[in-house]
Lab assay of single mutants.
Amino acid sequence: DEVRLHVNGHTIEFRGIDEEIFKILEEAAKRGADEEELRRLAEKLLR
Rank of each mutant, 00 (worst) to 15 (best):
H6E: 15
E2Q: 05
E37Q: 12
G16M: 01
L25S: 00
A33H: 07
A42Q: 03
I12L: 03
R47H: 13
R47Y: 05
E20N: 10
H6G: 05
I12R: 00
G32R: 01
K44L: 12
G32T: 03
E36L: 10
E26T: 13
H10Y: 01
E37S: 13
E26D: 08
E35S: 05
A33M: 13
R4L: 12
V3R: 15
R39W: 08
I24H: 08
I21Y: 04
A33C: 08
E36W: 12
L46F: 04
G16S: 03
L38P: 00
K44C: 13
E27T: 10
G9F: 01
K44G: 11
K44T: 12
R15I: 15
R15D: 15
I17Y: 03
F22S: 04
F22M: 07
E13H: 04
T11E: 15
G9I: 03
A28F: 10
A29I: 11
R31D: 12
I17L: 08
E26G: 05
R39T: 07
D1F: 15
I17E: 05
E37I: 08
A28T: 08
G32W: 03
V7C: 01
L5T: 02
A29M: 07
E26L: 14
E37N: 09
K23S: 10
K44I: 13
I21F: 06
D18S: 13
K23E: 11
I12K: 00
A42G: 05
V3Q: 15
E43V: 06
R31Y: 08
F22I: 11
K30D: 06
K44V: 12
E35D: 05
H6Y: 00
L5I: 15
R4A: 05
G9Q: 02
F14S: 06
E37W: 11
L25P: 00
V7H: 03
K30N: 08
A33T: 07
L38D: 00
F14M: 09
K30A: 08
V7E: 01
R40I: 11
E19A: 11
K30P: 00
E36N: 12
E13Y: 03
H6P: 04
I12C: 03
L41S: 01
H6A: 07
K30G: 11
D18L: 03
V7L: 07
R31E: 12
V3D: 04
D34A: 10
L5W: 00
I12E: 06
A33F: 11
K44M: 13
G16F: 02
L46I: 13
K30W: 09
K23N: 08
G9D: 04
F22H: 05
D18I: 04
E2W: 13
L25F: 02
L38I: 14
E26V: 14
I21V: 09
H10I: 14
E26N: 06
R40S: 13
N8H: 03
E26K: 11
F22E: 03
A28P: 00
D34Q: 14
H6N: 14
E2A: 09
L45K: 04
E43R: 05
V7T: 02
K30Y: 10
A28S: 10
R4H: 15
A29T: 05
L41W: 04
F14R: 04
L38N: 00
R4S: 11
V7R: 01
T11R: 01
V7W: 01
A29P: 00
I24D: 03
R39S: 05
E2F: 14
A33S: 09
L45D: 03
I17R: 01
G16N: 07
D18R: 01
E43L: 05
L38T: 01
E36P: 14
V7S: 02
K23M: 09
E26Y: 11
L25Q: 00
E2R: 09
K44W: 09
I17H: 02
E35T: 07
I17Q: 02
E19T: 07
L45E: 06
F22V: 10
E43A: 08
N8Q: 04
H6L: 05
N8P: 04
E27S: 10
F14E: 05
V7D: 01
E20C: 07
K44F: 10
E36M: 13
R15F: 15
F22R: 04
L5D: 02
E43I: 06
D1A: 13
R15H: 15
K23I: 09
F22P: 01
R40C: 07
G32F: 04
D34T: 13
E13G: 01
R31I: 09
L45H: 08
R31F: 10
F22Y: 09
I17A: 05
R15N: 15
R40H: 10
G32Y: 03
R39A: 04
L45A: 08
I17F: 04
I21K: 08
E2I: 15
L46A: 10
I24G: 03
E36H: 14
R47W: 06
I21D: 14
L25E: 00
E20Y: 12
F22W: 05
E36V: 13
R40Q: 11
E13I: 15
K44Q: 13
I24E: 09
E37L: 09
A33P: 02
L45T: 04
G9V: 02
R47P: 11
